[in-house]
Design a protein around this nucleic acid. Structure first.
Lengths: 145, 145
DNA sequence: TTAAAAAAGGATAAAATTGTCCTTTATTAA
DNA sequence: TTAATAAAGGACAATTTTATCCTTTTTTAA
């Protein structure tokens, strides 16, 4: 609706990893894909991007898997994940697809979009993985179906 | 960013048609594509959808083209165009891609998205083609580049 | 030191979206 | 009535996104 499929999987995966890391558990791609109901290999690709962007930590070999440090859960905000996967078109792009669209030369929807985008942006910048993981932990929210 | 390319072109085309209809001019696909800087044949397809959904009126043959009745410009709101082209996933779909995501079984972002989506939905439902066309007419806004 | 486990990465494939081309249908004006 | 004009529609092509498969690299524990 707003994010690419890759980004949706990425956020869900990150939240799941955070949740398990709270219990000190590392998780494999297979487990993640199972738990967030996503295609395994595709999810693996997305996790590579998150790893390269230092959003999650990966460890190879037996007992390896993905994890997120407790402090990183506070530092990592949703906008970082979105940016790592979808780039910054959500923030920059014109709602009607104009190449240049700004206050100087606005598309007909420019002003109306500014408000909505500002809200979205603020929300993404202020929502941490920790916050989302704890919502899951207490059974208030879900990552599947 | 939020709409498909098809939908972006559709909105721009509709606004341009409305603008010209204010002067009593019918416009051809070729002119529309030129003026909104979009691929001709693809734009033609999109205009077919708008025509089938009674958002614009089409007339075949010489002197034919696309037009919008003055009263229709008030009646047609952006949400109607978006629905005709992108369907209602903008309104219904879960931000994280869950098949069922509602107050009963929300994804971790559900509540945060509700507000943003409500604003977006309200904006689309309350913005008429006439409003957008007049902004263009007085040179306040643009459809190209 | 070796077998097994797990992520990384490369090469494709499938599906969806975007875009083009060409023929058909309708309509108008000469 | 006919030639020209314009939308409608069908078939296909290109691109992007989503998804799969298989090999390589790293690491652990036995």
């Amino acid at each position: 609706m707003m994010f690419s499929k890759a980004c949706e999987y990425g956020i869900r995966a990150a939240v799941y990893i955070a949740l398990q890391s709270l219990d000190g558990r590392r998780v494999s791609v297979t487990e993640i894909a199972e738990e967030i109901d996503s295609p395994i290999a595709f999810t693996a690709k997305i996790l590579q991007q998150l790893t390269r962007n230092n959003i999650v930590n990966s460890v190879k070999g037996p007992t390896g898997g993905f994890e997120i440090d407790r402090e990183e859960m506070d530092n990592v905000k949703l906008n970082m994940i979105v940016k790592a996967i979808d780039g910054d078109k959500i923030y920059k792009g014109c709602g009607l697809g104009l190449k240049e669209c700004d206050a100087q030369k606005p598309c007909p929807l420019h002003d109306k979009f500014v408000d909505i985008r500002t809200d979205l942006s603020r929300m993404l910048k202020s929502t941490s993985l920790f916050e989302l993981a704890t919502g899951l932990e207490i059974g208030m929210t879900f990552l599947k179906r």
